[in-house]
Nucleic acid binder design. Structure first.
Length: 278
DNA sequence: GATGAGCGC
């Protein structure tokens, strides 16, 4: 195969002077031929750091900033709007002289974050004071149409419930429709009572799922009266399915629709209405 | 793929 004279990589012979080449990205390559201890001629290739790649990316980012905004952002000025945009940490890693990896936080982004700190942050999933994208429930429950519970507020919010409704707080066991054995997981029950509650059967749970996992997953839809996780009698591992009873049929209904087909622990959960066993 | 526990005073 003929070798192109312009292909510097193949120009090996008779060049004792260092050669330098700069490519389109501004990366400079230096080639020199040295004589080593054994008297042999060796080729030494060095390149300047690829720092210009970084600049190229930033140029593209800068260009994008000038694009007209569209959708709900239409007509807004360039740059992120704190109401809709989460400015994350831009962390660079660099090697220190001791070989340890050192974290460097980009100062520009720190400044940006500080600027946005005064703004209110409200998670659309759980109403916590973090961004929706940072919600701890995002992976398991991160559904866009996160339906707020109609009959029960989220997250052990007894005092909050009082504030929200403006009426007197009613303890769960005193509420209409609450069962006498309202302790979730107590499994105390006579079957008749159990079977008249709106109960879901959850299948395809992983074997290390616990009652707590299941109730965490479902409690945001409303008050749960009972969680039963089928465990292997000997090993104690989850047998892959569980029953979740709600106080309110509507809550169970919404939970069924919302969680059925959702991923949890790398598995796709199935949620159906339970049939009474007999 | 699956339908919940224990049985004694």
């Amino acid at each position: 195969m003929p070798v192109s004279a312009t292909n510097w990589a193949d120009e090996v012979d008779g060049e004792d002077q260092p050669q330098t080449f700069t490519d389109a990205n501004g990366i400079t390559t230096i080639i020199e031929y040295r004589t080593n201890d054994d008297g042999k001629k060796v080729k030494v290739t060095r390149r300047t750091q690829k720092k210009l790649i970084h600049d190229v990316v930033n140029k593209a980012v800068a260009a994008r900033k000038k694009w007209p905004k569209f959708g709900k952002e239409k007509g807004n000025k360039p740059g992120p709007d704190p109401a809709t945009t989460n400015v994350g940490d831009n962390i660079k890693l660099k090697l220190s002289s001791t070989g340890q990896v050192v974290q460097e936080v980009d100062e520009q982004h720190e400044a940006m974050k500080a600027q946005l700190q005064n703004k209110k942050i409200l998670c659309r999933i759980c109403k916590g004071d973090h961004f929706t994208t940072k919600c701890p429930y995002k992976d398991s429950l991160g559904m866009e149409d996160a339906a707020a519970p109609a009959s029960a507020p989220a997250e052990d919010a007894a005092p909050a419930a009082e504030q929200q409704t403006g009426s007197k707080y009613i303890a769960p066991h005193m509420r209409a429709g609450a069962s006498s054995d309202s302790k979730a997981g107590s499994g105390s029950g006579d079957r008749e009572k159990r079977d008249e509650q709106p109960t879901l059967r959850v299948t395809n749970l992983s074997e290390d799922a616990t009652e707590a996992d299941v109730s965490e997953l479902f409690k945001r839809f409303g008050h749960i009266s009972r969680v039963f996780l089928a465990r292997d009698r000997e090993t104690g591992f989850c047998k892959g399915f569980a029953f979740v009873s709600f106080t309110m049929r509507e809550d169970a209904q919404r939970a069924q629709e919302a969680i059925d087909g959702r991923g949890y622990d790398n598995l796709i959960l199935r949620v159906e209405w339970a049939k009474s066993s007999a």
